[in-house]
Design a protein around this nucleic acid. Structure first.
Lengths: 153, 153
DNA sequence: AATTAAGTTCATTTTGTACTGAACTTATCA
DNA sequence: TGATAAGTTCAGTACAAAATGAACTTAATT
């Protein structure tokens, strides 16, 4: 059951160009009955090498997809899933829109012919990205506001 | 200039888990001075094999990132960039939110302990995805409405 | 100070993906 | 109907990313 789930998340991750092992780790952190799990727990559950676990944990930490936690009187590091990660991923998406927009602007500088239909199509796409770039942060604010209100009740 | 741009788009594409060649093709379609280009134009410009061009063009067509066009009295197929592609990519993003949400729901079914902080964190993430799932299509409608109004002026 | 545990690093190997090139299919033209 | 052009398919190859395993570092415990 849980092993099957772990593999599903691994494959899902792979589809988005990330490593299968990273997805498996995330799947384990989310579905395990423990609040957080250790390096060795992960290694044992996924039957993988320390090197691979180490690299993928550090990738997930760098992407802020998982968190580190410590337990007093225990020298191990524990890892857990955090809801904050999703907001970070959201911000990254907004960031990649900005980057793609730059590429579109450069494309029109290079083809350099405003009379082309293509040129207009690219302009329209740039406009849409500008729209998203201004609206998506507002959407996030709306969510934060809505959530705050919920908690006050 | 244009070759450098093509390579930049190729690398950008690769970062998102797609093939470099697909990115190069898109880069060429966007930045070339022609409205649309043929299979052979692409092959010649990118110095790549017919097999690779064929496979990548079909991938881009399947993803609705590029379009086919024909010219009367010419048996070649021409390919071009279209602004519609960006709306399709947007819809796909919404779709992938739905899929990720399903994985989160399953995670909570498996850990099966509503008292866990992790469980609550996952619930919060699910809520955020529900929010996006309902708001993003609205955002797209807002854009379409805004654009229509612009054209009427 | 010696021992053990936790995690990192890195050379090697494995694995998967993308590209090539040549043969093949399909369709158009003379 | 034979020739040519356009594009596809696929077996082989090249290359890059990811996993392994063992040696290494760092820090805590006795």
């Amino acid at each position: 059951m849980m092993n099957e789930y772990i593999e599903t998340v691994g494959l899902f991750y792979e589809r988005f160009g990330l490593s299968r092992m990273s997805g498996r780790i995330l799947g384990y952190l989310m579905s395990s009955p423990e609040e957080s799990v250790s390096f060795e727990d992960i290694r044992a559950r996924l039957h993988a090498s320390k090197g691979s676990i180490s690299g993928n944990i550090n990738f997930l930490l760098a992407q802020k997809i998982i968190n580190r936690t410590m337990k007093p009187g225990d020298r191990k590091t524990y890892y857990c899933f955090s809801a904050k990660s999703v907001y970070h991923v959201f911000d990254q998406k907004v960031q990649s829109i900005t980057e793609m927009k730059k590429l579109l602007i450069r494309a029109n500088e290079i083809n350099n012919n405003p009379l082309l239909d293509k040129h207009k199509q690219i302009c329209e796409t740039i406009d849409f990205y500008n729209f998203l770039e201004s609206e998506l942060p507002k959407l996030k604010e709306k969510w934060e506001h809505q959530k705050k209100h919920e908690n006050e009740k």
